[in-house]
Each structure stands twice: as structure tokens, then as C-alpha cells.
Simulated assay, not measured.
Amino acid sequence: MNQSAREGYRIADLDQSQRPRERLERLGAGALTDAELLAILIRTGIPGENAVQVGQRLLNKLDGLRGIHQAAFEDVCQEKGIGPAKAAQIKAAIELGRRMAQESPRELPTIHSPQDAANYVMYEMSALQQEELRVMILDTRNHVLKIEQVYKGSLDSSQVRIGELFRTAVKRMAKAIIVVHNHPSGDPTPSPDDIAITRAIVQAGKLLDIEVLDHLVIGQGRFVSLKERGLGFG
């Protein structure tokens, strides 16, 4: 076995045009694949695999970045070619991305469409392992004043107290809300209970003079707008 094989395949062994760090410098981070971004953190490979291949194997084994985020630290460490130091760097990088998505912006975000609302919560809620229902509270210009978690756990139309969804909106004299909940399965297809809850929320909003702009179901990297589909808003 030669010296390179004993030390592991290095990023430097790749053609310069294919090295992740050089590609990032030249094209920007957005041009890199998930495996290439992980390779920058992993740095060196193992006999038979360079760092990009190790990163791709990690993604495949743990079911993508979401899976790496949810996996226990020990499980990431145990993957061949990772170990505690690299696992810590990977976990830290993903956590920084999660925190950035949650940072309060200097200006209140404005919701113009279901896509805007989904983009605002997608990163965090698509990674949740339990079902959660949150209420996005909006002012007259559709600025997001607050996002409040109302329920955690399996949603059942017989258990959801509709008044709880409007409590903070009433206190803040909000003019509109958007209801958002996730499906941990990754499939955002609305269930019959989702539609029944939506119908009850819309009716309550009319009584309180608080418009229910939408109810979004968040899945893995995608969402469904019940209003766009005419479910519960008829």
C-alpha cells in the first residue's frame, strides 16, 4: 500500500477544478452539493474513499442533512471516516444553519404568499420529529409579529381547542393569522382531521374578525396550502 492509501484519500488528490473548497471560492457555496460541503468539513478520506465520497455515504446512511441533524452524536461518530472531531464539526455547522434560520431579522418579514410563509418556517419544522401546530400572527400589512407554538404531538380535531389558536392574536389585536403544522412523515398531504380543524379555525376567525389567511402543512422540503386547494376554506 502506498503512502497516499495509508493516509487516506485527500481532497488534494482530486483535480483542482473538482476540489470542493476551490469550487466554493470560484462559484459560491450554493453551487456545491451537500456531499461537497460536508467534504470541506471532513477534509480527508479513507482508503478507497475521498472526503466527498465519505460525505455522500454519510448522507445516504443517515437519510440526508435532516437525518444527520436528528441523529445522535454517537451515531455520526461511528460512521467510518468520521470520528468525534469531524462529527462535532458537522453537527456544529448544521446547528449554525438552524440558528441562522431562526434569527430575528432587523425588519419584520412580510408574507405575500403561501410560499413566503412556508419559507419562513420550513427549515426548522421539516426537521421536527413530532407533530407541532404553530400560529403565525400578522399585522395589517402582513408583517409577522410572532410565531407561537400552540400544540405538540399528534393533532386530533377533537382535542384541538380553537380558542387557544387565537388567544395571542386577540391580545395583540392582530388582523390575520396563518396556521402551520408539520407532518413528521415528510408527506404534507392534508388528512381529514387537518381539513376539519381548518374549517373550525376559519369559522372562529370570522366570529373574532381575525382573518385566517391559510393553513400550511409542512413536509420534507415541500408543503401544501389548504387554502390554495380549497380545503376547509369553502
Results as ranks from 00 to 15, higher is better:
6 R>A: 15
7 E>Y: 12
10 R>G: 08
13 D>Y: 06
13 D>I: 10
14 L>H: 05
19 R>P: 01
20 P>S: 07
21 R>W: 03
24 L>G: 05
25 E>N: 04
25 E>S: 03
27 L>G: 01
27 L>H: 07
28 G>R: 06
29 A>K: 11
29 A>R: 13
29 A>T: 11
29 A>Y: 02
30 G>D: 07
34 D>K: 00
35 A>S: 10
40 I>L: 08
42 I>L: 06
43 R>A: 12
43 R>P: 06
45 G>H: 06
46 I>C: 01
47 P>H: 02
49 E>Q: 03
49 E>S: 00
49 E>M: 00
49 E>H: 00
51 A>T: 03
55 G>Q: 04
56 Q>S: 11
57 R>Q: 10
59 L>E: 08
59 L>K: 11
60 N>R: 07
61 K>P: 01
62 L>D: 12
62 L>G: 06
63 D>K: 14
63 D>E: 15
64 G>L: 14
64 G>D: 15
67 G>R: 13
68 I>C: 06
68 I>F: 07
69 H>N: 10
73 F>H: 10
76 V>W: 03
76 V>N: 04
76 V>Q: 04
77 C>W: 01
78 Q>C: 04
79 E>N: 07
79 E>F: 03
81 G>L: 04
83 G>E: 00
83 G>Y: 05
86 K>T: 10
88 A>H: 10
89 Q>H: 13
89 Q>Y: 10
89 Q>R: 15
89 Q>P: 01
90 I>L: 09
90 I>K: 05
91 K>W: 01
94 I>S: 10
95 E>N: 13
95 E>F: 10
97 G>S: 14
98 R>A: 14
98 R>P: 08
98 R>H: 12
100 M>Y: 13
100 M>C: 10
103 E>A: 15
103 E>V: 13
104 S>I: 13
104 S>W: 02
104 S>T: 12
106 R>V: 09
106 R>H: 12
111 I>W: 12
112 H>G: 15
114 P>C: 11
115 Q>D: 14
116 D>C: 08
117 A>S: 14
118 A>Y: 11
118 A>T: 09
119 N>F: 08
120 Y>P: 01
122 M>C: 08
123 Y>Q: 13
125 M>W: 03
126 S>C: 13
129 Q>M: 15
132 E>Y: 01
133 L>C: 01
134 R>Q: 02
135 V>L: 00
135 V>Q: 01
137 I>M: 05
139 D>L: 13
143 H>S: 04
143 H>F: 08
146 K>M: 07
147 I>K: 01
